[in-house]
Simulated assay, not measured.
Amino acid sequence: MKMRLAVLVLAGSISCVVQGDFVSLHNGSVIKGRILSIKDEKLQIDSGYGKLTVPLKEVTDLDSDEPVWIRFKGSDTFQQWQLQTTDHQLQLVSDDEATMIPADPSDFARLTSTPPENDDWRWSGHANAYANIQRGNTIKNAYNLDGRLGIRNRLNRHIFDWRTEQEDDDEKRIKDYWQLKYDYNRFLSPEWYLSGSGGWEKDQIKGLEYRVNLGLGLGHQFWGEPELNLRAELGASEIWEKFEDPGERKETPAAHWALHYDQLFWETMTLFHDQDIFRRFKSSSWLLQTATGIRYKLTDVLHMSIRYEFDYDDAPQAGKKKDDSALLFGLGASW
C-alpha cells in the first residue's frame, strides 16, 4: 500500500511538471514540461524526465504556464512576459493580461525562467576612416579615424572612444591630434547609473601638450534600444592641462555634462550626436566638444559616415582661436 502511494505521488509530481509549458516542433512533436531558457539560438526545456535542448529554428509554438524573463537582441534589459501561441503566432502577454503583442522567438537574445541575476557580456561598436590625399603641385595627406567600443552586461557598461587627426603637407607634419576617452557605468536600476569617466587629449595646432580629465557623476538612460539610444550624465571632474607656451601645467575642478544620442530611421540611416561640456571653476571658462552626423548602412557591416565636429574653448592658448570645426566624409564598419 505504501509503495503504491509513493508511485502515485511520484506520478502526480511528474504530471504537474509535464502539464506546465508546451513546445511544438516542425516535425509535429510536442514537448511538455517547463521552459528553462533560450540562449545561443537553443531552447532548453525540463520534460520532467530530464533536460532537453532543441535548436530554436525547429520550434513552431511556445506556451508558458508562468511568466518568463526575455531580453531581445540589441537590448540591454530583461522584460517579464508570458508566452502564448494562437494559430502558430507567438504572443507575449503581460502579467495583468492587458497587453498582448506578437513576437518571433528568433528575436530573443536570452530567455530565462528565473529572475536574471547576471547576464552575458555583449559587444557593440563602430569605427570610421576619412582620408584626403592630394598629389601634384601640392603633396598632402590627411587622415581621420574615430570609433567607439561598448561592452555591457546587466549591471556594468564600459565605453571606449578614440579619435585621431593626422595631416602632412609637403612631407611636413602640420596636424597631430589624439583623443582617448573611457566611461564606466554601474547601473542602480534599468535607468539610473553611477558613472566614472576619464580622458586624454593632445592637439598640436592648439599648442596643447596634453589635457587629462577624471570625473564621477550620475547618469540616466532614457532609452536603450537599438532603434533609439539616449543617455545623459552630470558630475564633477578634475582637469589637468599643459600648453607649449608658456609651458606651465594648470589644474582645475570642473562640472561635467555629457550626452549621447543615436536613432535609427528607415532601417538604414542612423542619426547621432555626442557632446561633452566642462565648466572650469578656477578660470570660469567653458570647454565644449561635439560630434553630430549620419551613418548610412551599405551592408550588414559597412556604412557611409558624414560627421560634423565642433570644439569650443573660451580660454585657449594666446594667439589661438576659440573654436574649431570640421565636416568629414568617410566609410566605416559596425559590429
Rank of each mutant, 00 (worst) to 15 (best):
residue 333 A to F: 06
residue 161 D to F: 00
residue 55 P to D: 13
residue 65 D to N: 15
residue 64 S to C: 07
residue 41 E to M: 02
residue 198 G to K: 01
residue 72 F to V: 04
residue 306 I to S: 08
residue 163 R to K: 08
residue 91 Q to N: 15
residue 16 C to P: 07
residue 289 Q to T: 04
residue 199 G to T: 01
residue 103 A to L: 08
residue 224 G to Y: 04
residue 223 W to V: 10
residue 174 I to V: 10
residue 253 P to L: 09
residue 179 Q to K: 07
residue 34 R to S: 14
residue 121 W to R: 09
residue 101 I to H: 08
residue 166 Q to G: 09
residue 144 N to W: 11
residue 14 I to Y: 13
residue 214 L to F: 10
residue 284 S to D: 15
residue 47 S to T: 13
residue 316 P to R: 00
residue 327 L to R: 05
residue 204 Q to Y: 08
residue 182 Y to A: 02
residue 166 Q to R: 09
residue 6 A to K: 11
residue 260 H to S: 02
residue 98 A to E: 15
residue 177 Y to H: 08
residue 223 W to F: 14
residue 48 G to I: 12
residue 172 K to S: 10
residue 322 K to H: 05
residue 77 T to L: 15
residue 130 Y to I: 02
residue 107 D to P: 05
residue 244 E to N: 10
residue 332 G to R: 00
residue 232 A to F: 10
residue 144 N to F: 04
residue 290 T to G: 00
residue 226 P to K: 03
residue 195 S to R: 05
residue 234 L to A: 07
residue 155 L to H: 13
residue 15 S to R: 13
residue 105 P to G: 10
residue 142 A to P: 10
residue 306 I to V: 15
residue 64 S to G: 13
residue 187 F to R: 08
residue 112 T to F: 00
residue 109 A to Q: 09
residue 104 D to C: 11
residue 28 G to W: 14
residue 268 T to Q: 07
residue 142 A to W: 04
residue 96 D to C: 12
residue 100 M to K: 14
residue 324 D to W: 03
residue 244 E to V: 14
residue 324 D to T: 04
residue 254 A to Q: 01
residue 326 A to K: 12
residue 152 R to K: 10
residue 285 S to E: 01
residue 187 F to Q: 07
residue 184 Y to F: 06
residue 179 Q to R: 06
residue 25 L to M: 10
residue 29 S to N: 15
residue 149 L to A: 08
residue 33 G to S: 15
residue 210 Y to T: 01
residue 310 F to R: 07
residue 18 V to L: 14
residue 37 S to I: 08
residue 135 R to Y: 08
residue 179 Q to F: 02
residue 332 G to N: 01
residue 308 Y to V: 02
residue 261 Y to E: 00
residue 95 D to Y: 15
residue 73 K to P: 03
residue 81 W to V: 04
residue 303 H to Y: 07
residue 171 E to D: 12
residue 75 S to I: 06
residue 206 K to A: 06
residue 162 W to C: 00
residue 20 G to W: 09
residue 217 G to L: 02
residue 247 G to D: 04
residue 36 L to K: 04
residue 104 D to Q: 11
residue 144 N to Y: 05
residue 261 Y to M: 06
residue 304 M to R: 06
residue 163 R to D: 04
residue 183 D to K: 06
residue 334 S to Q: 09
residue 206 K to R: 05
residue 129 A to R: 07
residue 117 E to Q: 10
residue 215 G to N: 04
residue 202 K to G: 06
residue 43 L to F: 07
residue 122 R to C: 03
residue 292 T to Q: 01
residue 10 L to I: 13
residue 264 L to E: 07
residue 219 G to W: 00
residue 295 R to G: 03
residue 67 P to I: 05
residue 78 F to M: 07
residue 327 L to V: 11
residue 220 H to T: 05
residue 312 Y to T: 04
residue 29 S to G: 08
residue 149 L to T: 09
residue 84 Q to D: 15
residue 287 L to H: 03
residue 88 H to Q: 13
residue 194 L to N: 02
residue 210 Y to G: 01
residue 91 Q to H: 15
residue 269 M to S: 14
residue 61 D to C: 05
residue 237 S to Y: 02
residue 156 N to R: 07
residue 175 K to Y: 08
residue 57 K to Y: 14
residue 214 L to V: 13
residue 119 D to R: 13
residue 54 V to Q: 05
residue 227 E to F: 02
residue 85 T to P: 09
residue 192 W to G: 12
residue 198 G to P: 01
residue 242 K to S: 02
residue 269 M to A: 12
residue 220 H to V: 13
residue 26 H to E: 14
residue 157 R to Y: 01
